[in-house]
Simulated scan of single mutants.
Amino acid sequence: MERLQPLKPEELSPEQREVHDAIASGPRGQVRGPLAMWLHRAGLASRAQALGQYCRYDSSLPPRLSELAILVMARTWMAEFEWWAHKPIALKAGVSSEVVEAIRVGKTPEFSLPDEAVVYDFITELHATRNVSDALYQRALDVLGKDMVVDLVGVAGYYTLISMTINVFGVVPSDGSAPELQKA
């Protein structure tokens, strides 16, 4: 069954065009993937992309930890487009190829850095139990600090929305890449 398709430039309303141009002129440089789906509802696209800009570019999390969290979210939701889009960014940000590969195949990575281990454990437990234990919360505070814990929850929430959008509307890599994520 065909799902929602991105709007063509000539199909955009003035409000959609304004949101499109704001996204395209920002750090993303283009409108694709879930953002293209949200553009069907300009109000959602405008607000969601603003949250996404904060979560991805302006949060207290360094890119290495933010991108690690995004990969864990992509794997959790089996969101291929998100994996495809963020795997190269995560590697460039310093997430090791061994960690990326373990996440891809559904295995718990061996971490050498405590901040990466706590991000992985936090996101994994949050999705498995819909909460985190007091012990893990305290560990996250001790390792990351309050600001990064708050931003980590924000990243998890935003990329849950991203992943649901990808999965519901069948968003796939634009270059036709084969799926990489394996069922555990």
Rank of each mutant, 00 (worst) to 15 (best):
M1R: 10
E2S: 13
L4D: 02
Q5Y: 01
P6H: 09
L7C: 14
P9D: 13
E10Q: 15
E11I: 11
E11D: 15
S13A: 10
S13Y: 04
S13M: 03
E15F: 09
E15T: 08
Q16F: 13
R17L: 11
E18P: 03
E18D: 14
V19L: 12
I23N: 01
I23F: 11
A24W: 04
G26A: 13
R28Q: 04
Q30H: 11
V31G: 10
R32Y: 05
G33V: 03
W38T: 08
H40E: 12
R41L: 05
R41C: 05
A42F: 11
G43T: 09
L44G: 04
L44F: 07
S46Q: 14
R47L: 11
A50S: 15
A50Q: 15
Y54S: 03
Y54V: 06
R56P: 05
P63F: 03
P63V: 02
L65K: 07
L65F: 07
A69M: 00
M73G: 12
A74W: 03
W77A: 09
A79Q: 07
A79R: 06
A79D: 04
E82G: 04
W84V: 02
K87A: 14
K87V: 11
P88W: 12
K92F: 03
A93T: 11
G94T: 03
E98R: 13
V100D: 04
E101M: 01
V105H: 08
K107L: 13
E110Y: 02
E110I: 08
F111I: 08
L113G: 05
D115T: 12
D115K: 05
D115A: 13
V118D: 05
V119I: 12
Y120L: 04
I123P: 06
I123A: 15
E125Y: 02
H127K: 05
A128S: 11
R130P: 01
S133I: 04
D134M: 06
D134W: 01
Y137Q: 13
Q138C: 10
Q138K: 15
R139G: 04
A140V: 00
L141Q: 15
V143S: 06
L144P: 13
L144N: 09
L144T: 14
G145M: 12
D147I: 00
V150Y: 03
A156I: 02
G157M: 10
G157F: 02
Y158H: 15
Y159Q: 06
T160I: 05
L161E: 02
I162D: 09
I162L: 11
T165I: 04
T165A: 14
N167Y: 06
G170H: 03
G170E: 02
V172Y: 10
P173E: 08
P173N: 10
G176M: 11
S177E: 14
E180C: 08
E180I: 04
Q182I: 03
K183M: 07
K183N: 07
A184D: 13
